[in-house]
Simulated assay, not measured.
Amino acid sequence: MSLRFIKPMSPTLVEVPPTGPNWIHEVKYDGYRTQVAIERGTARAFTSTGINWSSTYKQIVGAANDLAESAIIDGEAIVLNEAGVSDFRSLRSAMRWSPGRIIFVAFDLLHLNGVDLRRLPLLERREHLLELIGAGDGMIQYSHHVVGGGADFYAAVDRLGLEGMVSKRPGSAYRSGKTEAWLKIKCYEEHDYEVAGVQRKPGSAPLALMVTRDAERRYVGSANIALTKAMRERLYQRVQAGKGTPPKGADKVEGEWIKPGLVGRVKTLKREAKLRHATLRGIREE
């Protein structure tokens, strides 16, 4: 029987890591969720939505061809930067210019040599995975974990400048879709930026367009608007008044620009040159 793409099991986003010994914790790698399927010495790589990206991940596919007669491996395609940290922007660049830098970090095994492993406990599946790929540092690598100590693990991840962590129930079966048996916790920080405008498109949530609070007023990206009703009304009063101009670096951004002077408190992923997974949480007058 031909192996088909399996919809991934997806962690639920939470604010703080779980406590207690009945959780294992892994690094959350900053890349593209990827599924590698192997059949009769030929491997294929799929995106999280089932699109065949084997031509994009040629080196990964080549390294996977001889791992098993058949297997489905779940993991993340990443690129490591100079500090040895997974870097999403470097991954996007490598996909076009240097695909040999892309590696596959595997964290789950769904099928192996004709056997469906999804009903097995997570730790048992991971034991089979480690036996299959080994603990080396080649094109396909194993995602190591620790047992318990979620708060300490999060502190270490944050200190190392990583995107976050994923916590999993060690006895969990693999069930496609979102689950609370897997949790993801990201490393955020909050900063003040100037609100330069708002982007409103039919069918999409409105976004606040943010710039630096200096003479340069450099565009740093957009943030989802998570304001109280009163704050949201104040923001849209500013938008209706208009009188703003596109800031530096936002020449291709469609926005309704407002007059300078409105400061926004933004929660965003740490150590990013521009806003990522950001939310506007408060506003005040300069």
Rank of each mutant, 00 (worst) to 15 (best):
residue 31 G to K: 08
residue 9 M to W: 01
residue 4 R to W: 01
residue 10 S to P: 00
residue 36 V to Q: 02
residue 19 T to L: 07
residue 15 E to G: 00
residue 3 L to G: 10
residue 25 H to Q: 07
residue 31 G to Q: 07
residue 5 F to Q: 07
residue 5 F to M: 06
residue 16 V to L: 10
residue 9 M to K: 09
residue 22 N to T: 03
residue 29 Y to L: 13
residue 35 Q to F: 07
residue 13 L to P: 02
residue 36 V to G: 01
residue 8 P to A: 05
residue 6 I to C: 06
residue 14 V to Y: 02
residue 18 P to L: 07
residue 28 K to D: 08
residue 3 L to H: 10
residue 12 T to S: 15
residue 22 N to L: 05
residue 37 A to T: 13
residue 37 A to F: 03
residue 7 K to H: 11
residue 5 F to G: 07
residue 7 K to L: 04
residue 2 S to D: 13
residue 38 I to P: 00
residue 37 A to D: 02
residue 9 M to V: 05
residue 30 D to F: 07
residue 40 R to L: 04
residue 10 S to V: 13
residue 8 P to W: 03
residue 19 T to P: 00
residue 1 M to K: 13
residue 27 V to K: 07
residue 3 L to A: 11
residue 1 M to P: 12
residue 35 Q to V: 06
residue 24 I to W: 04
residue 5 F to P: 08
residue 39 E to N: 08
residue 24 I to V: 15
residue 33 R to G: 11
residue 40 R to Q: 14
residue 37 A to K: 05
residue 21 P to E: 14
residue 37 A to C: 03
residue 33 R to S: 12
residue 23 W to N: 04
residue 39 E to F: 01
residue 23 W to C: 03
residue 30 D to Y: 07
residue 35 Q to T: 12
residue 27 V to F: 02
residue 20 G to A: 08
residue 37 A to N: 05
residue 16 V to R: 15
residue 16 V to P: 00
residue 25 H to A: 09
residue 23 W to E: 03
residue 8 P to Y: 04
residue 28 K to P: 06
residue 31 G to T: 10
residue 38 I to V: 14
residue 10 S to A: 09
residue 8 P to E: 03
residue 19 T to Q: 13
residue 19 T to S: 14
residue 32 Y to K: 02
residue 1 M to T: 15
residue 27 V to P: 01
residue 14 V to S: 00
residue 18 P to I: 04
residue 15 E to M: 06
residue 38 I to L: 03
residue 12 T to G: 01
residue 27 V to A: 02
residue 33 R to E: 05
residue 20 G to R: 10
residue 3 L to N: 10
residue 10 S to I: 14
residue 31 G to N: 10
residue 6 I to G: 01
residue 7 K to Q: 11
residue 11 P to C: 09
residue 38 I to W: 02
residue 35 Q to S: 05
residue 18 P to Q: 09
residue 24 I to E: 05
residue 35 Q to E: 15
residue 11 P to E: 08
residue 32 Y to A: 06
residue 14 V to T: 11
residue 25 H to W: 14
residue 18 P to N: 06
residue 36 V to W: 03
residue 25 H to E: 07
residue 24 I to C: 10
residue 15 E to C: 00
residue 29 Y to A: 05
residue 34 T to R: 02
residue 19 T to A: 13
residue 16 V to E: 14
residue 33 R to N: 11
residue 30 D to E: 08
residue 14 V to F: 01
residue 32 Y to P: 02
residue 23 W to A: 04
residue 14 V to D: 00
residue 29 Y to M: 08
residue 4 R to K: 15
residue 30 D to V: 05
residue 13 L to N: 01
residue 21 P to M: 08
